[in-house]
Simulated scan of single mutants.
Amino acid sequence: MTMLSRVAERLYWMARYLERAENTARLTNAYTHLIMDLPRDTQVGWEVLIQMLDAEPVYTKRYRVFNEQNVLRFLIADQENASSISNSVRAARENVRTTRDVLPEETWEHVNELFIYTQETAEKSIGRRHRYEFLEQIISRCQMVNGLLMTTLFREHSHRFIKLGHLLERADMSTRIIDVGAGAILGRAETNQAIDPLLWGSMLKSLSAMSAYRHKIGPLVEPNAVVNFIFKEARLPRTVYFCLTGILEELQPLSNNGDAIQIVESALQKLTRFDAENMTLAQLHQFIDQLQISLNQLDDAINTAWFLPMQS
């Protein structure tokens, strides 16, 4: 089965933008609840959310301080932030609009309804009064679309490029959360046995991994165990290892896949040797930097192999 490269690219980015909107909503929701539970003098601020999304250069051009109102506007409704929930949903809708003929009929209806809901309620949801309901709606509606695609889409190249987009975006977000989150917690001058478990628990909740962690590891939320779990657990769909093995599976049937497969296999080899117990914070940060470089290289390889116009 063949597919136009521009269609494959739009499906890939539709999936990435849907995953980005859902992940940003998850992260924002978990962090909002965490901030409200912490003592006022706790050294954790709203700038952590911006750092996790690697958006400081864009943010500082528009806002002077990292307070709750500014950060939440930037993440939820800011039209100048290409990765805001509002813009991610808009971009996903545009990619669905131009690929409707290869998607289940209901896809356009659900994504268009998500877009309309976001446009009508995003700005009103910056404040705490409506924020929780808005973020829960974004999460549930994105999951509904993804569930529709995964349960009704014909298993051919359309499904393959959608899964590649979902899994790559999810792996990228998981590494960012661990990188900045661990740095913010472990890099503080003093540990706090009462507060630190809340911080690590919030990281798990932002990835919907708390129940799985307790099932596999136990009730105690410990730093090294959390990091190893999010990176190496093979049976949880939101871990880096699960995402990379899923990507490898989808790459196998494609032609011209050599460069992309080599990048994924190299990253998986590094993951198998990874153990947070034997790393300093600086070494952990360096490892994650290398992993994120691999994810960027993988995106470039996918783009070059299947999306760029062929050179004559």
Rank of each mutant, 00 (worst) to 15 (best):
D78A: 03
W108L: 01
T98H: 09
R97S: 10
S86Q: 15
R97K: 12
I85E: 07
D101E: 13
D78I: 04
V102S: 01
A82L: 15
S88P: 07
A91K: 04
E106Y: 10
A92L: 07
A91R: 07
S83C: 11
Q119W: 10
F115C: 10
W108Y: 11
T99E: 03
H110I: 12
T98N: 12
A92Q: 04
N87I: 03
V102W: 00
I85W: 04
V102R: 01
N112M: 06
N112F: 06
V102N: 02
W108H: 04
S83Y: 13
W108S: 01
N87D: 10
Q79D: 15
Q119V: 09
L103R: 02
E109D: 13
S88F: 03
E94K: 03
E113P: 06
Q79K: 14
R100Q: 14
E94R: 03
W108M: 01
E105Q: 12
S86K: 14
D101C: 03
S86H: 12
R90V: 05
E113Y: 11
N95I: 06
I76A: 09
A82I: 12
V96A: 02
V111A: 07
T107K: 02
L114M: 11
N87M: 13
R97Q: 14
Q79N: 14
N95D: 05
I76H: 08
P104E: 02
R90D: 11
N95V: 05
S84Y: 08
T98A: 07
E105K: 12
N81V: 08
T107C: 06
R97Y: 06
N81W: 03
Y117I: 09
A92G: 01
A82S: 15
E94M: 07
F115W: 14
E106W: 11
Q79E: 15
V89K: 03
E105L: 15
S86D: 11
R100H: 04
I116K: 13
Q79H: 15
Q119L: 13
L75Y: 07
L103I: 03
D78C: 02
E106T: 12
R93M: 01
T118P: 05
A77G: 11
V111D: 03
S83L: 15
T118M: 10
A91V: 04
L103Y: 00
N81K: 09
N95W: 02
D78P: 05
V89C: 11
D78K: 07
